[in-house]
Design a binder for these strands. Structure first.
Lengths: 360, 360
DNA sequence: GATGAAAATGTAATCGATTACATCCGGCGA
DNA sequence: TCGCCGGATGTAATCGATTACATTTTCATC
């Protein structure tokens, strides 16, 4: 007489079915599956046979309800279509799914109410932990993610003033190294193609740029800081801005806060007739796959994308299983400068680093 | 006295707490939240106030256990780092999360036992539906995804001999159109850079290529079919193969089964001194973002990536909620040829389509 | 063979929500 | 006034697994 209002999934084998078939109690079945060593050999084989025959698999909702765990973690990603994050996600996925966790991906590109929905979901206990790749604490109108009393770990983008573990690279130091490479080559007029000012990565990379110039005794010229927002499009715009300058006033090198902008810029100035790297050396940041595909290939800072994800995931697992683990608050992973075809000494220079050329 | 073996999440507000505070029964609270119209105004406001004061959110595991639903769908993706799928995922995510579903992403790049784990997970009732972007039926050693008795929908890659809905583009027809464009321009020696032979998309695109040649009365030259596997690397290799040919024997145009290979090939032959499109016209397939970033920009077939995802998701939702809906088995979405800078009439030709030049 | 500890298994409470069914109450028609 | 109807709410069964505690079995030892 059961009238099915909604689509109902039929007949599921449950633990009591297995128990009946094996001639044991449900407790024994559960134990056989959870801790095989505590049941006697003979019972175990009987139970396992029954499990196989019935095709039993435990109902996860029931288990979760009982043990108060969900075995899923939520990963907040700024933009899933961004290849950089896609690779970080791979690392996360590898580690987490090996440990038996499922992951819900919260793609924050899109309407902001989505973020709120995800926060509520976590607060409702739908996840055992959260991985933030998004550079900010997620909020919903009434709650904060912290209210969820769930372990948090951040990766890639540093979130200031927080106490949970964060897995990042040394953006300041690596940016300094990138610009240092240009200086080594003999460049003294080095532009910076920036990200959105509010972004922490942008702030750190800009700081690295400044430090490198300062160390080399090169005066920072604010006219050489081009606005951008990490997208290809703004790279193109920056390229046009460069072309609009008097040739003599043009920088001989440029450090871009990420690869996408660098590639956009290169494409633009290259089509306009500038030679890369002869007329302009370019260094990017991130090490996305296309940095190695474009023409010329891009010298860039390669971030350990998979490791960033995997490390953060491992840290979160530790946190989730052992409660408050030893909080390694700031975990820095090494990023390295990958030399490719987009950098070279400036034309006028002999190739040595005559740092005081600038003082004219 | 509660000794916490595992990390236990503390104090969760439950429905009975709300009921007590509001001075009503749990049933009333549940009803207030599920069907506000059946409780009287005064009670409703009292309950809602209690909900707000306590910060109550229902325990999803408990609800799922009771109503036998999970509100999550599993999405099987061949490779999450592939920008094409990343965008399809966006469409899926938009639609699904708007409808209140969470999504578990099964990234099939990686060890095959992962696929099995996901199959088991679905069979265990952990998902209400599955979206397959992977071109094959998922399996685990003992089970098939069909055993899960859960709605399935496939998208992007067609899976033959199945009865569930599939959302794809007309690969044969669009490939024919792409090659037709080259023929229109006057090309008669047109190479094909193929995908892996076992892949259905490859088979369909190859078929489209053949049809276009046949219609134009051009004899298919199997020497012009270059092996590839959809990766950038094989595009590079194909480029080298092309360069190794006698200049006179080289095709004047090439159709690549996807953009990534096309870009790899262009980069390779371009660095070697061939002019694109003057010496070689190239058409790609997919319309990934980089097709518009590379130098020259790539003429390609643009797939409606977001719509593919969104449509498939919508179809799955229909299936999940209304049981066996009207099964629109094959849903074809339009893809369009995007003309950019990588195609042009062949050098010798006047630019008109003198199709019978070949018979010379 | 009795004894007790340890090992194996069983019983039943529990997790937190949904919902069929029971109950209560007010109002309306006869 | 009685009885009935229907709307609002309460009671308690239920979903399916885990596990504390109870009970039974095993077995080494004297």
């Amino acid at each position: 007489m059961a009238k099915r209002t909604r689509a109902t999934r039929p007949k599921a084998v449950k633990i009591s079915d297995v128990a009946r078939l094996a001639g044991v109690s449900v407790a024994t079945v559960s134990r056989t599956l959870a801790r095989p060593d505590v049941v006697i050999e003979e019972t175990r084989t009987r139970v396992l046979a029954a499990v196989r025959d019935t095709g039993y698999t435990p109902n996860i909702s029931a288990r979760n309800l009982r043990v108060r765990k969900t075995m899923v973690v939520l990963v907040a990603v700024p933009d899933i279509a961004n290849p950089f994050f896609a690779e970080v996600l791979q690392g996360i996925d590898d580690t987490l799914s090996a440990a038996g966790y499922g992951l819900i991906i919260a793609n924050l590109a899109g309407p902001p109410e989505k973020e709120a929905r995800y926060v509520d979901l976590v607060c409702a206990g739908q996840a055992d932990g959260v991985l933030l790749l998004c550079g900010h604490m997620m909020r919903s109108p009434n709650r904060d993610l912290r209210d969820a009393r769930v372990p948090l770990v951040a990766a890639c983008e540093y979130i200031p003033h927080e106490t949970f573990p964060q897995v990042t690279i040394d953006n300041v130091g690596t940016a300094r190294e990138a610009v240092g490479h240009l200086i080594q080559l003999g460049h003294t007029s080095i532009a910076y193609l920036s990200g959105p000012k509010s972004n922490i990565l942008e702030q750190q990379r800009l700081e690295g740029y400044r430090q490198a110039l300062r160390e080399a005794g090169i005066a920072a010229d604010t006219g050489l800081i081009l606005p951008g927002d990490f997208t290809f499009r703004t790279g193109v715009e920056a390229g046009r801005a460069l072309l609009a300058l008097e040739p003599a006033a043009r920088p001989t090198a440029l450090f871009a806060a990420n690869d996408e902008m660098a590639i956009g810029l290169i494409k633009t100035v290259h089509t306009a007739g500038l030679q890369i790297p002869d007329d302009l050396s370019v260094v990017g940041f991130d090490g996305i796959a296309y940095a190695d595909y474009c023409e010329p290939t891009l010298t860039t800072i390669v971030q350990p994308r998979r490791s960033l994800g995997a490390t953060a995931a491992a840290e979160l697992i530790a946190l989730m299983t052992t409660g408050t683990a030893e909080l390694r608050k700031d975990i820095k992973l090494p990023a390295k400068l990958m030399l490719r075809d987009s950098t070279r000494p400036p034309r006028k220079s002999a190739g040595h680093s005559f740092r005081d050329l600038r003082s004219g």
